[in-house]
Design a protein around this nucleic acid. Structure first.
Lengths: 181, 181
DNA sequence: TCTAGACTGTACGGTACCGTCCAGAACAAG
DNA sequence: CTTGTTCTGGACGGTACCGTACAGTCTAGA
């Protein structure tokens, strides 16, 4: 089956994810995304039940991409310290943290919060395991993992308003110095 | 001049701030806020130029309240350690951090970002001064202040999805242990 | 008490979006 | 080429909101 030219569910999901990144959940609207794809609404309603299904698809795509790219990429780094260094690099360089932040802290839609919660918990588990590897107690590991991830999100927030440090390397080193035993 | 019964600009601003807290900038809409006040739109358009002016008024009110309540309340605590303890208490207990988070990290409206930036920078200055008092270098103080405030915002984000630690006291103690020299 | 100015209710037109309907285009299979 | 299925364009009605128009109400002060 040559699926050229015609639009697929995934095309719509990808465009919706782009809209989500740029303008949050409210930007995942049928007509604007259709315009982005130069398609019409009937095309959309042929492939999807309704607007909520589009948002679901975008979130699912994000969760999958994120899980494959970030979580495994972190889990594959053997050194716990290196893992955190990478995490902060990601927070400060790419816009990846930006979307995580928006979905975690800036939306009210329960669907969004559910997905954000799942992703967040998985990330926290990875971090917590890192601290345990470094010999911390269970409780302290949990606290540190929370603190590190909160810093990750918060730094993304500060970057949005231009209040994040410009000397990234030194900042990351200082964070690591504070969090590591 | 007995200004009873009639609605004032401040009444609208307060209602708009409530809407802002609950639903973000997009919830600061004329008709919903009018409904909240059981007033009509003409009342609004008599007092305000347009919707943007209402959002401005709400943000200005927030900035004023926040400056008076939080910033000075923090600045008045002589002990730098106690200052941070209070900051984290605020982040975890009241919903105060929630609005700061939303305005800082969840909005795209430039007006919102401008105000959020001003407030954030002022708070960062207070924190940075605290670390300097504790004998840290200028650079390290700046980094720590950023980290603490990022943690404050990030923890608020985590609280939104139920991923913040429930044992608040121990968490705060652990944060302080990590950040303080 | 009368009146100017401060304020409000209701109705209206405009825009952006959701979701539906239907006529038809595109395409695979005979 | 014909036919059945897959997919699309364009028009439609419904809702929520912005901003305007205008007639009418309230209040302070002469």
């Amino acid at each position: 089956m040559p699926r050229t030219a015609r639009l697929s569910r995934d095309d719509w999901a990808a465009a919706a994810l782009a809209a989500l990144t740029e303008g949050g959940a409210s930007a995942v609207a049928v007509e604007p995304v259709a315009a982005r794809l130069k398609a019409s609404k009937s095309s959309f309603y042929w492939l999807f039940e309704n607007r909520a299904a589009l948002l679901d698809a975008a979130l699912e795509l994000w969760e999958r991409e994120q899980t494959e790219q970030v979580a495994t990429r972190l889990a594959d780094i053997p050194d716990p310290v290196g893992r955190m260094r990478t995490l902060f690099r990601l927070a400060l360089s790419t816009g990846g943290a930006d979307l995580a932040l928006r979905l975690t802290g800036g939306e009210t839609d329960p669907t969004v919060l559910k997905v954000a919660g799942r992703v967040t918990r998985r990330r926290l588990e990875v971090l917590q395991a890192s601290f345990r590897e470094l010999g911390m107690t269970e409780e302290r590991s949990r606290h540190r993992a929370t603190a590190v991830y909160a810093t990750y999100l918060g730094t993304a927030a500060l970057a949005r308003i231009g209040a994040a440090p410009s000397d990234t390397g030194a900042y990351v080193n200082d964070l690591l110095a504070a969090y590591l035993p």
